[in-house]
Design a protein around this nucleic acid. Structure first.
Lengths: 250, 250
DNA sequence: GTTAATTTTTACTCGCGAGTTTAGTTAACT
DNA sequence: AGTTAACTAAACTCGCGAGTAAAAATTAAC
C-alpha cells in the first residue's frame, strides 16, 4: 500500500483530487485499518503504535495527530468495527419470513448468515478484544451493546413477534425468544472456533446452527397446527421433526 | 554515604513478623491465590509480579523459585481455576432428576446453580482471562475445554439421555441437547453481568434461567404427556407455561 | 518563484515491569 | 553447637513501548 511513497525520502503523498477542507483524510482510514488489524492480531497491550504505524505506511506522530493516544485509537477501532459488524447482521435479518412457509429452511439460512458474521475473523476478533479489555474499558461493552446487540435483538424480536402475531409461532415474550434464538444458533461458536483462533469447520457449524433452529422451532411452533409446519427439509442430524407431528397423547 | 546505608541494611531486614513463616511449602498456595486475584482483577499484562508478591506476602524471587516466570504462573492459575470451577458445576449436576416428577422446577434449580458458578466472580474472571489471552496462549482454551467443558457436557448429556430413555424427554442427540441446554440457560449471561464487570441482578438472572429451562422443556418434552408436564411452579416473568397449553390463536 | 501553512520524519525522553543478583536471616536437621 | 536450605529485601539490568520535540519536506497560496 502506498508503494509510491517508498521513494526514499522524496515522499509523494499524492494528495490527489480533493481540494476539500482537509487533504490527508485517507491517512486516517489507513491508520484505522492497520490499527484494527494489529489490535485484533495482538490484543491491546501487545499492539504497538509503531507496528500500527508501520502497517499503515505512516509514521507514529501522524497517528497522534489524527487520533489521540492509543486508548482513543482503540476505542475508535472497536466502535467502528462493532457498527459495521452489527450492520451486516441486521442486513442478514432484513429478509425474514412472515409466514410459516418453509420456515425451518428459511430460518436456518438466516441463522447461518448471522452466525457467519459472528464467526468471521473480524467478528471474533472484536469479541475477544472487548472481552479482553472489559476490565480496562468497561464502557466499551455498553457502547457496543447499545449500538449493536440491542438493535439486533430488537430487530429479531420484531420479526418473531410478527410471526407470532400471525399465529405461526407461539411466542409470549419476543425479546426473550430472540435472545434464545441467538443463544441456540451461536452457543457452540466458542467451541467450534476455539475462541476464534482456528478456522471454522463449516460442516460442524452448519450442523450446530441447524440443530439450534430445529430446537427453537420445536419450542415455539404452535401445537395445534395441522400440517407439519417446520418442514423437515434440510434434515441433518438432529431435526427429528418427525416427533413434531405429535405422537399419541399417552 | 553509601556505607551508612550498608549499616542500616543490616538492621532493617531484621525483626520481621515472627509468625511470618507458617509452613514451608504452602507459600505456593499463597502465591497462586494472590496471582489468581491479581490476574483476574488486572488481566495478564497489567498484572505485575511485584503486585502478586505483595498480595501474597511473599518476595519476588520466591515466586520465581516456586513457579517459573509469569507465563507459567498464569497457566497454572488458569488451569487450576478451571478445574475447580468445572468441579463445582459437575457437583451441581450430581443431583439430577431421573423422572418427569417436578421436572421444570428441579431443572431450574440445577440450572440456576450451574449459572451461578459461571456468573460468579471467579467464573467470569476466568472466562475473560482465557478470552483475552486466547491469541497469546491458544492452547489454554483446549486444555480447559478438555478438562472442564467436555466433562460437563458429557455428564449433562448422560443425565439427559437417561431421562430420554425413560420416555420423559424426547431427545435424539443428548450431546447436542446438553449444549443447547447450557446455551439456553447461560446465553444472557454476558449481557446480564456486562462481561463480569458488574454484579449480577439476581432477579433478572433467575428470570433468564427460568425462561431458558422453559424453552428447553417446551422443545424436548414429549408431546404425549398428559397434564402439563413443565409444572408452572416457580412462575416468574417469562415461564408462561400457560402458553404451553396452546394459547388463543390470534 | 517565493513564502507560509501543515504534515511527516527522525531521533529522543521517560517510565515501567520482568527477571536476576547479592547479601543477610530464619528455621530445620544431624 | 554447625550446616544447610528456604526465604526476604533491596538494588540492579535490560528491553520495550508510549508519547514528544524539533528538523525536513511538501503542498497551497500569493
Amino acid at each position: 500500500m502506498v508503494e509510491e511513497t517508498k521513494r526514499s525520502t522524496t515522499t509523494t503523498p499524492a494528495a490527489p483530487a480533493p481540494a476539500a477542507t482537509r487533504g490527508r483524510i485517507d491517512k486516517r482510514r489507513a491508520i484505522l485499518a492497520a490499527a484494527e488489524a494489529v489490535f485484533t492480531r495482538e490484543g491491546y497491550t501487545l499492539a504497538g503504535i509503531d507496528a500500527i504505524a508501520a502497517e499503515a505506511g505512516v509514521s507514529k506522530p501522524t497517528i497522534y495527530n489524527h487520533l489521540g493516544g492509543k486508548e482513543n485509537l482503540f476505542r475508535t477501532v472497536v466502535v467502528e468495527a462493532a457498527i459495521e459488524s452489527s450492520g451486516r447482521i441486521l442486513a442478514a435479518l432484513e429478509v425474514f419470513p412472515t409466514d410459516a412457509e418453509e420456515l425451518h429452511p428459511r430460518l436456518t439460512a438466516i441463522a447461518h448468515r448471522v452466525v457467519q458474521c459472528q464467526a468471521g475473523e473480524k467478528g471474533w476478533a472484536l469479541q475477544r478484544l472487548v472481552y479482553a479489555e472489559a476490565a480496562r474499558f468497561p464502557d466499551l461493552y455498553d457502547t457496543i451493546r447499545e449500538g449493536g446487540t440491542v438493535r439486533i435483538v430488537d430487530a429479531l424480536a420484531g420479526r418473531l413477534a410478527r410471526l407470532a402475531h400471525g399465529g405461526h409461532l407461539d411466542i409470549d415474550d419476543p425479546v426473550t425468544a430472540a435472545n434464545q434464538f441467538l443463544a441456540l444458533i451461536s452457543g457452540d461458536l466458542p467451541t467450534l472456533t476455539a475462541l476464534g483462533t482456528r478456522p471454522v469447520d463449516d460442516a460442524a457449524l452448519h450442523r450446530a446452527v441447524t440443530a439450534g433452529v430445529t430446537t427453537f422451532l420445536r419450542a415455539f411452533t404452535p401445537r395445534a397446527q395441522s400440517a407439519g409446519p417446520p418442514a423437515p427439509g434440510t434434515g441433518e442430524g438432529a431435526p427429528a421433526s418427525g416427533t413434531l407431528t405429535a405422537p399419541p397423547r399417552r
